[in-house]
Design a protein around this nucleic acid. Structure first.
Lengths: 331, 331
DNA sequence: TTTGTGCCTGAAAGTGCTTTCATGAAAGCA
DNA sequence: TGCTTTCATGAAAGCACTTTCAGGCACAAA
């Protein structure tokens, strides 16, 4: 059984208050006493228990992350940013996986009440007004990533602008037949509809340039590679098939790439493919894509929760991250 | 301010003991009293605070995972298994990123003392005898993944056998010039040397069949795609280049694939490529590989820590997961 | 000698539950 | 009716720290 603050106090012949002070604010205690206590601490190998400290300080030094982790690939890179910022700030990271609407619902309602967390980061989940207001009222500092809500801090990108950037890039490369492949990660009512926005942006600039965007007959209601592959097959089978396809995510772009290979189309000569996200594997496979600074989004979110933790009264802040195309080999 | 157990007790006109019993073992309390208390609980919206419960029970319902997450791609899939098993068991998952030897050292020495965790899972980190014994003695239940040690529970695979499986598979496909590309994730003294073992297994079966294995002149001391690409270039530039390359991981295989593309080699006709791990993207890009059941390893590890948590005296258990080749398009 | 002024230090409250132990009431039995 | 047994409940200890508050003590000034 490890030593407690009481053991140290007895051993050094002082009160526990003094031991606590030696640990937390040594300058306030008489040098002679301090050295004696320090020797006792070392002799007994005393280390304050994190949970006891947390209780007394009413600060847990833990921040939670709620996300549909395993259905959604972009989380790793966001998490990377979150983890490193959090660790720099001396906070631990606890992970809540929310792949189903039921899980999400349960977490969202219990986490604020359990009072185990100092802050919470919610990734890629759409929150309705009621929920957002409840969260805000619960007193648990929250930051959103990818989604936004007026009453909660958040960091996102301009998805419509992303579609415009993609369209301009492809048209600048001479494409006049542009296809779109999309779909969103389905998590019930919490599903975020970014794919649609990216398509809108694409259509805007295409229309302005007199270029028509080809959209699959059946829009997918999920975001798997297989869906994308089927969508691509459909587009490529048309009488005037697209010479370029913009996929609403890198994962979907993989499906397009596969479809191209199966139809013996050379990329980018016969078919240019442009993704969205800039996931890690995009670089590996040479996929051209729109980068949305995933890692930075994680760091930003940590800053936002920290701000909310420092001052609960502060107004929600919203950060919008820039987008840029990363030119590689597929477009 | 949320309601506490005291508020409920007052409201229902009972003692806090009774409220506690209604929450935790309702069958032991008189139905009339029970209903009254339950009504008070609902009226006040009482939810027991997780940290208070944890303290009183001396059980935190949190398990930690320590791993070089962001230098090591296989973690996502392992984590998926861990997260879902943990959540089924009602435990939370706290993540400790350990990309540098210094971080690892600090975590390994502080986590057992801070007493915030009920258990710890350590992924892909080599522990020396002293550390393993210390951990064991600390009383914090531990399970290892990918590494093993006699005094700690662990789940791993037979890496040498993995090399043999790869060699047999490639030779059965007719290859007589087999190349190897390898390298390990470098985390100082904690670096695990699995690449070497996989090579040994490959050499064993090749030698037995009179086939020579081609190994790059400069073995890489890291495991990046770029390293693998350079290694592959070197092998392919030889007078008698390999017709198949076994890469010690899927990430490395990506580098080989890239090298093949740059040299205008068709895969698998001109060069067969076989990976190891079966990461998620392997399926996406059609990479043939040796699966090591990453998700299962996570589930197994949870079982092992749980066993250790249930009975601290129990002997360490070791589980070895099966390997099998997943035939796709590259070999 | 008395009063004032800091500096150290200890006592004690606060944190919100679980769980053991003891007690009283009610029920069962002869 | 008197005794035992069971059931339901409350009191209180325990958890391991931080932090506030008050007071003791030494030293300087009056």
């Amino acid at each position: 059984m490890p030593a407690t603050i009481y053991d140290v106090a007895t051993h050094a012949g002082v009160s526990i208050s003094t031991v606590s002070r030696v640990v937390n604010s040594p300058q306030g205690v008489n040098p002679a006493t301090r050295f004696r206590v320090q020797r006792s601490i070392e002799a007994l190998g005393f280390v304050p228990r994190a949970d006891a400290t947390a209780r007394a300080r009413r600060l847990h030094r833990q921040v939670g992350v709620l996300a549909p982790f395993f259905t959604y690939s972009a989380f790793v890179q966001r998490l990377r940013g979150i983890a490193s910022s959090l660790s720099d700030a001396g906070y631990e990271l606890v992970v809540y996986n929310a792949d189903t609407p039921e899980h999400i619902h349960a977490y969202l309602h219990s986490l604020p009440l359990l009072r185990r967390l100092d802050g919470l980061i919610i990734i890629s989940l759409r929150l309705d007004d009621m929920l957002a207001v409840r969260l805000r009222a619960s007193g648990l500092p929250v930051a959103l990533i990818e989604a936004t809500h007026p009453s909660l801090s958040g960091v996102d990108v301009d998805n419509r602008e992303g579609g415009r950037v993609a369209g301009k890039y492809l048209m600048a490369a001479g494409h006049r037949q542009i296809g779109f492949v999309g779909g969103d990660y389905a998590v019930g009512d919490y599903t975020l509809r970014t794919s649609q926005l990216r398509l809108q942006g694409l259509c805007e600039v295409a229309e302005a340039a007199g270029v028509q965007v080809q959209v699959p007959a059946l829009p997918a209601n999920s975001a798997t590679r297989e869906d994308a592959q089927q969508q691509a097959f459909e587009l490529l089978a048309r009488s005037q098939p697209p010479t370029a396809i913009f996929a609403a995510s890198d994962t979907l772009a993989l499906g397009v790439l596969r479809a191209a290979r199966e139809r013996n189309l050379r990329v980018p000569q016969d078919l240019a493919v442009l993704g969205f996200d800039d996931l890690e594997f995009a670089e590996y496979i040479g996929l051209s894509t729109i980068s949305q600074s995933l890692e930075v989004s994680g760091r930003q979110a940590v800053e936002l929760v920290m701000a909310a933790m420092a001052d609960e009264q502060t107004l929600p802040r919203h950060v919008q991250l820039p987008l840029h195309v990363v030119r590689r080999e597929t477009a």
